[in-house]
Design a protein around this nucleic acid. Structure first.
Lengths: 343, 343
DNA sequence: CTGAAAGCGCTTACAG
DNA sequence: CTGAAAGCGCTTACAG
């Protein structure tokens, strides 16, 4: 037989107080006598009583939960999620835990209607948006969320003309710094693998920073050496194959993400081009794989731990009716072996 | 001004019916007239009304939510979660979505008291346990969960003597199949990298399958060539360095996991030992990285999509008071380049 | 400091 | 097929 769950009334009965007092005692209300509080808490613990969150959330209209919407383009392998977002998921989960919030996770297809009604159903107090994909589709949904007065924050480049709180990296500066580092390693002919349209604003910013570094050092921007790619290993592999096939001379590849870089290195190695001796390769993100490749990958680290904290902090501020501002984090140059000067 | 949220009473008022009828209509109850139902649903949609889950969960004592406890040993990099479990997380999330359940995710330290009170607080109807670490610590917590009559399932090897529903892979068979494949590629001296104690039952089973394949093919099990490792790249790297330092002759390495294999390949390449020409290397799991390494990694695939579905299905069966049985899935041999016969 | 009571927004027996 | 009413288990003004 399953024993019926204890309620605050059961605790009250055992403690010889009213149910109201139990509720106050368990919430550490200053309105309750110290001794009473301790007695109630002891009994609650003994009976393994836990406050029913559905009831308390219904009463307080607060769920103590945040929803994370991880959206993505369809991939052939359903289980393959961009490792960078996986790191973010990890840090967001931890940041939520530190704040005493639970995290509801939901994967969404970029192309579908988002199941973003967690706040409407009162299951979550606010939403964190995380993902990539064509920005054009994305913007419409943001507008919808704003109209519904949903509390939300997002990871990514700043959104202009919309009252949206974003946390992102300074992609321009990151692209600049990486490129400058490799220029200082005496590379002159840079290829760039990654989409550079407004549909992928992060990649575009990285590219613009890259180009600025080139011109600041009196190097030529050769658009023949730019090939589109999305952030997958396969796409990076394809782009690098096209680059090689193109026949233009190059001695360095900036990949718009680490995953692209990994694919590019595979293509180079298949063509017996040595990294870094013949070609320097560098990426962006510093995903875990970046330190496992051979050679290990020079990249710009995005601080996912900090990002997770910022996203959660800002969302909770919004939930509490406070102000929150978009924030751009600096990236950190991580020098490894793939550009020839690493350890 | 924030507009007050609509309730079922508002919908009832607009539709000219009682609130009970609204509730029935929105739940597609057969008790409600077709025409009435459509009218109510139209109005609800128009007003963007969503049923308050806190209220309905309180009433029905069902949350429509599953909690996933992902526990792990502390790692130096907090954001680095075992990619295999990340794949599992992905498939579990999808499986939950397909069943109309939400997923609450929580990371736990193996060593800490688990925050496993999601069911006690009525935030979740059941719990999925996912993780690795020393099995000895783990068992105590399982017993605690059973005593609390918590609904839960877990990923991993079958647990003896405990009424626990597990979903796992046939690690013995996987180890056997992989080893046999490499034996057929004319390797004779096998090293094994991975812990082989009862604290890591999955690794132990893989090792036992490996050993069985060796003896079945009249090869010697050389315990000098077994080195402990946990499932990280670094640990695999260290174990391989020790193996190389040991000076025993070997021409193949079975790594207890892909992450260990990746670390081992790095160590080999640092010592100018070619994979697969000099040494065949194979892993276990088929994590995404396995197809990106150079050379790509031969391994045994654990079907994470199926695993996620099974875990969710079995948990929901338990939640509904039905029977659920422990299930062992077959692994699939994935032949790539690292053992010399791949494409 | 404590208690009695209202009410959060639903679902579902019960009565018709 | 529909409605009035009870009740899920809390939190918190209100009264003392």
């Amino acid at each position: 037989m399953v024993k019926a769950k204890n309620t605050s009334f059961d605790i009250a009965y055992r403690a010889g107080v009213s149910q109201s007092t139990v509720s106050r005692a368990l919430r550490n209300s200053p309105l309750v006598n110290e001794e009473t509080r301790l007695r109630v808490q002891a009994i609650a613990k003994e009976l393994n009583y836990k406050v029913d969150k559905n009831a308390s959330s219904l009463r307080t209209q607060r769920s103590g939960t945040i929803a994370l919407l991880l959206f993505e383009d369809p991939t052939n392998d359903d289980s393959l999620i961009n490792p960078f977002f996986m790191s973010m998921l990890g840090s967001i989960t931890r940041a939520c835990g530190n704040k005493g919030y639970d995290l509801l996770v939901s994967f969404q297809q970029m192309s579908h209607d988002w199941h973003a009604d967690f706040e409407d159903t009162r299951k979550a107090d606010g939403i964190i948006l995380l993902g990539y994909g064509d920005y054009t589709d994305y913007e419409e949904k943001l507008i919808q969320l704003i109209e519904q007065e949903t509390h939300f924050v997002r990871w990514g480049a700043e959104v202009k003309d919309l009252a949206v709180v974003s946390v992102g990296c300074d992609n321009f500066q990151g692209g600049y710094q990486l490129t400058e580092h490799v220029i200082n390693n005496n590379r002159k002919n840079f290829a760039f693998l990654g989409g550079v349209s407004s549909g992928s604003p992060e990649f575009l910013d990285r590219y613009l920073g890259h180009c600025k570094a080139l011109t600041d050092h009196n190097l030529v921007i050769n658009t023949q050496l730019q090939f589109d790619a999305i952030s997958t290993e396969e796409s990076g592999h394809n782009a690098a194959l096209n680059l090689i096939k193109g026949g233009e001379k190059f001695d360095a590849i900036m990949a718009a993400s680490d995953l692209i870089a990994v694919g590019a290195m595979r293509a180079l190695q298949e063509h017996n081009m040595r990294v870094p001796e013949d070609i320097a390769v560098f990426g962006f993100d510093d995903i875990p794989v970046a330190s496992f490749t051979f050679p290990t990958l020079t990249t710009a680290k995005q601080d996912t731990m900090l990002a997770g904290e910022l996203l959660v902090d800002k969302l909770l501020a919004l939930v509490n009716g406070e102000e929150a501002k978009t924030e751009l984090m600096a990236t950190t140059l991580v020098v490894r072996q793939s550009c020839g000067s690493g350890h």
